[in-house]
């Protein structure tokens, strides 16, 4: 023990008892851990799902890029064509 809290090796049960305040000390640490780990997990989940959506969207874009470079290639733009005409007419 760095600051000499008395006994160098506290029995496990005594440590868990927190001097009789276990019902207040452990929930405090538990709540903090729950919120901080939960926030991190939610953040990583939304980042992963967002990146997956972005990849899927970018996967449907090469058609447009090819059309930009070679406007004559009608087959490449076919994927986007229906949606395009609908929007313009509407």
């Amino acid at each position: 023990m760095l600051f000499g809290t008395g006994e160098p090796f506290l029995p496990m049960s005594e440590f868990l008892a927190m001097g009789g305040y276990a019902a207040f000390v452990w929930p405090s640490y538990g709540v903090a851990a729950l919120i901080m780990v939960g926030l991190l997990a939610a953040t990583l989940k939304s980042l992963r799902s967002g990146e997956a959506t972005l990849r899927a969207l970018e996967g449907s874009r090469p058609a447009r890029r090819r059309r930009d470079r070679a406007p004559a290639s009608a087959s490449a733009s076919a994927v986007n064509a229906p949606a395009v005409s609908e929007v313009r007419e509407g």
Partner: peptide, 14 residues
């Protein structure tokens, strides 16, 4: 572990 309980507040100081 490596800090003492408070002389007034005991282990709630943690």
């Amino acid at each position: 572990f490596a800090s003492p309980p408070d002389y007034q507040q005991g282990d709630t100081v943690r």
